[in-house]
Design a protein around this nucleic acid. Structure first.
Lengths: 237, 237
DNA sequence: CGGAAATTTGAAATCGCTCAATGATAGTGG
DNA sequence: CCACTATCATTGAGCGATTTCAAATTTCCG
């Protein structure tokens, strides 16, 4: 299930062309680096399985996770407007990615209006998600930020497979959660305990259960987003 | 000078089509709201003159400025993937905007490969800028955040008109700067004084002078970004 | 000139960070 | 299968950055 299906249903020809655009497949261990920030751009990637983080490293050596990628995501797309990669792509779990050269990607975009519109819409979706992330980090306290992040992952897992529920495996260390929320691993730890105490979540091993999704959404305090599907204004067909 | 020219030189036909896509022109007073967060989507806007902010409001009533728009920017584009606008668009100065209905925008995109590629690239650019903003707010202290914001505006003003230099009018109040950096107006005030003391900036009225751009960049500590121009991999004719 | 908006200042409170140490867990090699 | 090691989670104490609240000044505009 691709993100390609999220806004428009792709034709089989498009899906086929997409498969053909892949030139190579990489099997990655946890913590493997797919591409380092600052490296020359020549490809993007399709995440076939596993979780991957996009990280921006500050000159002063601090790391921000700007996106947590789940299977079906395209990786490294923002950097196509740059000479060198904007972010490092790091595997959070074992992962499988397919390489898509930029030339092949451009060809897909040029030759299928459908594909181009899909890319347009999902790029805007990513912008909205980043806007919400900026808002969460810039204007809310630690419990809110964690709530927002957990809900975001929860919602995306649900989209990926509607059988996914309030319980899921969270393969991020507290250090990584800290890098994603603009906090410290120590503070993540203490805030998690607070959320435990409030009975809105439950933790065991790497598993998280959202005990009260309603309360979490209220806590996170972000505006709710309803994405379009087959918007009429595209005037396709 | 459009953002449309930033990555690819548009054909005169494209520029013409773009002009024809505009259906209405709005003259806005400072503080006027062009579109409120949550309103139904039916158009995007072209900023012909003045400055505009995209703001996301939290359920708890806090406001984050996620983008400061300068003349030549398209406004409201991220929300095209939503049923309701993701952000409010608020004029920071007197401003002039042209309305572009979504159907007209889709037509431009569908009928000109050049235009579509331009949109693709500038959407990715906006993602990179947001990633950097997340990093700045999530991982750096107040002086760094302010330095990063001032430099960003400085660079964009320069791009808009290469005669623009280290001195420019900054029409944002300290409250608005706070909303953009994830800080408080009080703290913005004190941090500005600190930057004054360090002799990296100078303030008078609404005018800011970057006295030491080198030092500011070092302070901001963000990775430098070099955007592509006419990338070969597009394989346009 | 008068009033509203914006800037500046001070003092106290809070949130989150740093540092450093301890415990728990999982993976590795013998 | 166990000892060993590395990584991760947890805890405490003290500090630092930023916020909050409230008041005083200054600037802007009609």
């Amino acid at each position: 299930m691709h993100r390609l299906h999220e806004f428009l249903e792709p034709s089989t020809a498009d899906l086929d062309a997409f498969e053909k655009a892949k030139t190579d497949r990489l099997e990655l261990e946890k913590k493997a680096v797919i591409r380092r920030q600052g490296e020359k751009m020549d490809a993007i990637y399709f995440l076939a399985s596993g979780w991957v983080a996009s990280c921006v490293d500050t000159e002063s050596g601090r790391r921000q996770i700007v996106k947590i990628h789940l299977p079906g995501d395209l990786l490294g797309v923002p950097s196509i407007c740059l000479e060198r990669s904007a972010a490092s792509l790091v595997a959070l779990t074992k992962a499988t990615v397919d390489v898509i050269p930029l030339t092949a990607f451009a060809r897909l975009f040029r030759e299928s209006t459908q594909f181009a519109f899909s890319m347009l819409l999902s790029s805007q979706q990513e912008r909205v998600l980043l806007m919400d992330r900026v808002t969460s980090i810039g204007r809310t306290l630690a419990p809110q930020r964690i709530a927002a992040l957990l809900l975001h992952i929860h919602d995306r897992l649900k989209l990926l497979d509607s059988r996914n529920g309030k319980s899921f495996e969270l393969p991020l260390t507290q250090e990584e959660l800290a890098q994603a929320t603009g906090l410290t691993s120590v503070h993540i730890n203490r805030t998690f305990q607070e959320l435990d105490r409030l009975e809105v979540i439950e933790r065991s091993d790497r598993k998280i259960t959202l005990k009260d999704v309603r309360a979490l959404r209220e806590l996170a305090a972000l505006p709710s987003r309803k994405f379009v599907r087959d918007p009429a204004w595209l005037e396709l067909d």
